[in-house]
Design a protein around this nucleic acid. Structure first.
Length: 419
RNA sequence: GUGAUCAUAGCUCAGUUUGGUUAGAGCAUCUGGUUGUGGCCCAGAAGGUCAUGGGUUCAAGUCCCAUUGAUCACCCCA
């Protein structure tokens, strides 16, 4: 048997309604904030992600699906969408049409990691990007949008974590101070963190190793190395969140694994899923557009993992999706009259009714059982004596009443179905 | 990439400890329960290379090894 690739998953018809539900909330909420959907290709030149996300990041160095196409070009399945959106923004000179561009997206991403709860190799994200403004209101807006979507779904067990990473010059000074501090404790660090000391010293804050956590408790904090402008930016973000009635904690260890972040970073975690608890994350990336060959414009955005969100919803048991129903099931009493049943079905379907009928020449009992399985609101019996009088029987499946309707009076049938 | 646990019907699982007739149940599916009417109920049917390959044994779903896959955690991130 040929099976789906490791880490990929079929979304079957039985579970599609929760995806539609989530997608509809996402689109509605982002439209309310006047973000416009953008759809970029599933694959891009490898260089885009290497430069955008950063060569040294785990995503680029060991998680991307990269391959050579038939002409020898290095292609990568998108592992995230910020780089692609920025590429499209630059390529189409969108900043010339509008000084602030607000985009949202929704779709599959690819990373070759070991699968586990809430983590797949093909997974789905929605997210937003606002390009062209350094206004801290937009930093806060990302958090507000993400938080509102999660709470509109009914999720309870949430925590909003925010931090500021300042600008690169501040971070350089700080990194040196942090390294000075860590040199005295170097031998006690975990092996992983010893490596990070050289590659990305900030990420030692992410470690779950007890010894590392203990050492990092007394480490100098980046916030103390930010200048007034950066601090003000962060203050406005915080007060905007307070005004929007969003509870948050400042988490100085919130250092994200993508190189492009500046100033605000945030994450919303759920206590209702396993260890992959970050439902969404994002932040400001003021150097990225220039890095990818565009003007020196600021940007801010976030991305959210849809599988994780749905997992949290299931674990909190908060999704009450409307039951699937069909308007009409046509039961054919005489198999020889199935052409008449089908003609009625086509006509009603063209009038926007959900209509089903039997394609397997089954007994009346079997057809009724199926009508019930599909939650048919009405059943139409076609055949027998009534048909000889040019009539069909319409049965209301809720109260069981039935009445004869003339076969030529489709309007009456439509009217009845609409009741 | 590392580790732990697991793999029996479409699904959820018994059976493996202590090897021994024809591998079971519930749900789901299908067909009936008298002419042309659902849900509940009743009866019946169908559905298995016990993940795959090898080994031990008179005998393997059961014990051993390998492979593959899954789950969870590390790591990383959404």
């Amino acid at each position: 048997m040929i099976k789906a690739i490791t880490g990929t998953k079929d979304i079957l018809p039985s579970e599609i309604s929760k995806w539609y539900f989530l997608e509809s909330i996402v689109k509605k909420k982002l439209s309310n904030f006047n973000y416009k959907e953008i759809r970029t290709p599933i694959f891009e030149n490898t260089t885009l992600f290497a430069r955008g996300i950063g060569e040294g990041t785990d995503i680029v160095s060991k998680e991307m699906y990269t391959f050579l196409d038939r002409s020898g070009e290095s292609i990568t399945l998108r592992p995230e969408l910020t780089a692609s959106v920025v590429r499209a923004f630059i390529e189409h000179s969108l900043e010339k049409k509008q000084s602030l561009n607000k985009f949202f997206y929704i779709g599959p991403m690819f990373r070759q990691e070991r699968p586990q709860a809430g983590r797949y190799r093909q997974f789905h994200q929605f997210g937003a990007e606002a390009l062209g403004s350094n206004d801290p209101l937009l930093d806060a807006e990302m958090i507000i949008i993400a938080y509102d979507i999660l709470s509109e779904l009914g999720l309870k067990n949430l925590e909003v974590k925010i931090n500021s990473l300042g600008v690169p010059s501040e971070r350089e000074v700080y990194k040196n101070e942090l390294k000075e501090y860590l040199k005295n404790h170097f031998s006690k660090l975990s092996e992983e963190s010893k490596k990070r000391f050289n590659t990305n010293v900030l990420r030692i804050f992410d470690s779950k190793d007890e010894r590392d956590i203990e050492i990092m408790k007394k480490a100098p904090l980046l916030i103390n190395y930010l200048n007034e402008e950066s601090l003000n930016h962060f203050e406005v973000v915080k007060s905007t969140l307070k005004n929007a009635k969003i509870n948050f904690v400042v988490d100085s260890s919130l250092v994200r694994g993508l190189d492009y972040y500046t100033h605000t970073t945030f994450e919303i975690v759920s206590g209702s899923v396993g260890s992959q608890s970050a439902l969404c994350g994002g932040g400001r990336y003021n150097g990225l557009i220039k890095e990818l060959g565009g003007s020196d414009l600021p940007g801010v955005g976030f991305a959210a993992g849809m599988e994780r969100i749905l997992l949290a919803c299931e674990n909190e048991n908060i999704l009450n999706l409307p039951e699937d129903k069909i308007d009409l099931y046509i039961v054919t009493l005489d198999k020889s009259k199935s052409d008449i049943s089908y003609k009625i079905a086509v006509e009603l379907r063209r009038k926007n009714k959900i209509v089903e009928l039997d394609y397997l020449s089954r007994s009346v009992k079997a057809q009724m059982r199926e009508a019930n399985k599909f939650n048919a609101k009405f059943v139409l019996f076609v055949g027998g004596e009534e048909l000889n009088n040019n009539e069909v029987i319409l049965k209301n499946m809720i109260d069981g009443t039935q009445e004869n309707i003339s076969l030529s009076d489709i309007d009456k049938l439509l009217y009845k179905l609409g009741e």
